[in-house]
């Protein structure tokens, strides 16, 4: 598999505080990589390092095969667009002027692509309105448009839906999906809003205390978080016998609780269990969300 970004044992320390502690991760080309972690886990720190805003204390990372210490990293960064925390836009300029300024910094010969870019992010009708008078969602979209100047192959978005209203969240989500599907842009998106991330990401990296605790694809996560029926019975031994006979996939949690990864006929199941002297105490549909998976991964209460 081809990777856009690879980090190896990346560390970043601020005096006595360790923000990244041997972080190793890989972002596959063409993916929407959901970078999941609670506040202070090290998500923004990693993005700052990738963007060259800060230097790693130790370890290394590669962007399009260029090591962070090589001079080639400057060219690799030209293939990347980023919105770190808040959108980096000139508040005294209009949307068009902001994009023109970015085009000039990039040394692009003409401004021809600007109307298309504004249309893509839905800001084509903002006219001479200064960015300081934009709503948060509009600023966020303008930040993404600025990051898209120069047609990057890799887009880094740090908490892009923070503070947005539901409509704004939907707009940003659709924009990211459109960029990924239509323009084949690889997206690294950090967030702690897991439900939203689960609608976008094709790959996940779970970060906790400055290190990746697990990396997986969306398919792998789906398998882990698949829907099940949780049964509370007097004997899971009897239940296992019945389920084996029915050829159903299940998992015994303890002496009384088991998860069944199917939708069994409850009457048949109850009757079969009754024949073996086993009572059904409760039945509930259970699905492990990304949220509960994340909590189980990083260890719930300890991290609250």
């Amino acid at each position: 598999m081809e990777y856009v970004l690879k980090t190896n044992q990346l560390c970043k320390r601020y005096r006595s505080f360790t923000a990244l502690n041997g972080l190793t991760m890989q972002v596959p080309k063409g993916a929407i990589y959901g970078f999941v972690g609670k506040n202070g886990a090290g998500k923004t720190t990693l993005i700052r390092l990738i963007c060259g805003l800060q230097h790693p204390t130790s370890g290394e990372f590669e962007l399009y095969g260029a090591k962070h210490s090589d001079k080639a990293i400057a060219n690799a960064r030209r293939r990347m667009g980023a919105v770190v925390e808040t959108p980096a836009i000139y508040s005294e300029m209009s949307a068009v002027d902001n994009l023109k300024q970015q085009y000039r910094i990039l040394g692009m010969p003409s401004f021809d692509g600007i109307p298309e870019l504004l249309k893509l992010v839905g800001l084509e009708n903002t006219g001479r309105k200064c960015a300081k008078n934009f709503s948060l969602g509009m600023r966020q979209r303008l930040g993404i448009a600025v990051a898209l100047c120069g047609n990057p192959d890799f887009l880094v978005l740090d908490e892009p839906i923070n503070g947005l209203d539901p409509q704004g969240i939907i707009e940003i989500r659709e924009l990211i999906l459109k960029l990924n599907r239509e323009q084949k842009i690889t997206v690294l998106i950090s967030s702690h809003i897991l439900d939203e991330l689960s609608r976008l990401a094709t790959h996940y990296g779970f970060i906790d205390s400055g290190r990746i605790v697990r990396e997986m694809s969306a398919k792998e996560l789906e398998a882990v978080c698949r829907k099940c029926v949780r049964l509370n019975v007097t004997s899971t031994k009897a239940l296992a016998n019945v389920l084996d006979g029915m050829g159903v996939d299940y998992k015994i949690i303890d002496d009384q609780i088991a998860d069944i990864y199917a939708k069994p006929n409850i009457t048949q199941l109850t009757l079969a269990l009754a024949e073996r002297g086993c009572e059904v105490i409760s039945v509930e549909e259970h699905d492990e969300s990304l949220e509960s998976f994340y909590i189980s991964l990083v260890g719930g209460e300890k991290h609250e």
Binding site: C51, G52, L53, I73, A74, N75, A76, R77, R78, M80, G81, A82, V84, E85, T86, P87, A88, I89, Y90, S91, E92, Q102, I105, L106, V146, A147, G150
Partner: peptide, 15 residues
């Protein structure tokens, strides 16, 4: 204003 608008990041992020 480059710091208050955070636009200095764009220059660094562009290499």
């Amino acid at each position: 204003s480059e710091y208050s608008d955070k636009t200095i990041r764009n220059k660094k992020a562009l290499g």
